[in-house]
Design a binder for these strands. Sequence first.
RNA 1: GGGCCCGUGGCUUAGCCAGGAUAUAGCGCCGGCCUUCUAAGCCGGACGUCUCGGGUUCGAAUCCCGACGGGUCCGCCA
Length: 573
Amino acid sequence: MFLKFKHAVESVLEKALDSTGYPTDNLRIEESAHADLASSVSFGLASQYRENPAVIAKKIADAIMIPADSLIGKVDVSGPYINFSASKQFLEGAVHAILGEKEFHGADNKTSAGTGTETETGSARGKVIIEHTSANPNGPLHVGHIRNSVIGDTLSRVLKKAGYEVEIQYYVNDMGRQIAIVAWALDRFEFDRQKKSDHAIADVYIRANLELGEDPDLVGEIDALMQRIETGDEEMVTRFSDATDLAIAGITSTLERMNVHHDLFVHESEFVRSGEVNNFVQELVERGLVETVDGALMVPMPELGKDLVIRRSDQTSLYVTRDLAYHRRKAEACDRVIDVLGADHKLISSQLCHVLSACGIQEPEIVIFEFVSLPEGSMSTRAGKFITTDELLDQIEKQAFLEVTKRRPNESEDFRNRVATEVGIGAVRYDIVKVSPEKATTFDWKSALDFDKLGAPFIQYSHARACSILEKADHANESIDLALLTGDAEIALIKELARFEYVIDSAARELKPHVIAIYARELAEAFNQFYRLMPVLSAPRDLRNARVGLVECARIVLADVLDVLGIAAPESM
RNA sequence: GGGCCCGUGGCUUAGCCAGGAUAUAGCGCCGGCCUUCUAAGCCGGACGUCUCGGGUUCGAAUCCCGACGGGUCCGCCA
């Protein structure tokens, strides 16, 4: 509804500018504390026409014609600003749109699932392949990896909500040097079957790296393994895939716990076996993009200041070579290719894009996030310096259980366990997604387990409050007179609800998941203010019905926004 | 040394790309509100040279240049 409102504002403003003879291509429409939307177009015109901006604003506003039944209710001028406010039609339309779409929930409609996603035409916008997490299978996910998972998973959900068909992929490194080390280590050291498999893999991997560091002669053994895997040596293929499977099994169970899902696990080795890697290298040779230096093939990249090796002098391929083949396959299969990558991949991914572009292949949209470090420095799987996600989830659930027990001491242990899980996982996800990806963060236990500061329970609590009212209201399907909702808190809540689809749309376009987190908080805030000021159940009958309808809207959108964040929406907590 | 990112109250953080009306919110701090739909809530208050210095502009947290501080990358690793 908000998008439509914005379009309506653009339309009337454009007409008024035409009729007053102030053509401009920049309407300067912005969100504002003083109106639902405002335009500061007069400033630009003022310098252009050497007139007082307030005078221009007045002239334009006087020329604005608002059609009957418009979503725009009122236009007024405040100095140089032209302020637009939403109409009764907007408010009622917003409520009906949310209530009306309730029937679609659970119907698995692939087009504009959910609340008010009235973007585009309602048909799917196209297919997107998003790759995220893709952590090396040499150990468990640590608290840095899950920043990738949470950003990627939230974006996937945003894109689905915005009407895209989404396929989520995990790119499994099953033939790189690290995996050769794991395979080598599994032969050399005992594998602890009592432990979660990804943790046990890390144990032998860390030990192997220690030995390799002490005795550099052993490095030759790793090189030998890598040459054998490159030629498709069967024993080696089995050893490598056994090793990666063990780690991936542990990793997926952690992701499952976090409510993060992948549709497809794509293995690097596929691209070597299928010949796609060789074909790609061959194509680069034919296009004259490569040079041979000391027996290795490289693509010169003077503009990036760093040439890119795509085949070693021993003829084996590199990570980036396989990744090129992978990206070609993805580009051919969808409309948008999205990669979520850590900041350390900046250079290599711009090199990758460079090559893809030279070959006329669609480049991926890359979402880069900065590192999560520990107070004592950066994390390293190889050195065993990391905090695992499993450990964090265990701790947060334990802490959450104490918090639930403190507040609901009389509930069953079962109830408290369930809520603790929902609140704990939600808190972890929210805490990660709320900060914009380009901000480097430092993990510390005190703040990670601080439920006074964590944001998810606040939003979940609002949802639970809405559910509680609805349960007591016994939901008679009576007609609702929305004209009765005239309180500031009611109107503010409706406007906030109407922004949902707009927020989804911009998050999907700009690939910024944290705006969803911010919006969720603001929506919960608006609902809590309404809750405090506007009694629902004790209100006179018609007003009560109208407010119950509004609470139902809030419940739907709160559940929707929590779903987009991958956070559970408890009915009671 | 070069590239990229970040620098907003004691701490964390939004806004910056598309410059405009009193700079966002949380934690912490001070003070109110549970005989009323779950107080994981609501309301009020204190706390800011938006790192610093120039520049562009009627107007700069936002754009440009230069410092400074922090992170990160610069492998025939991934």
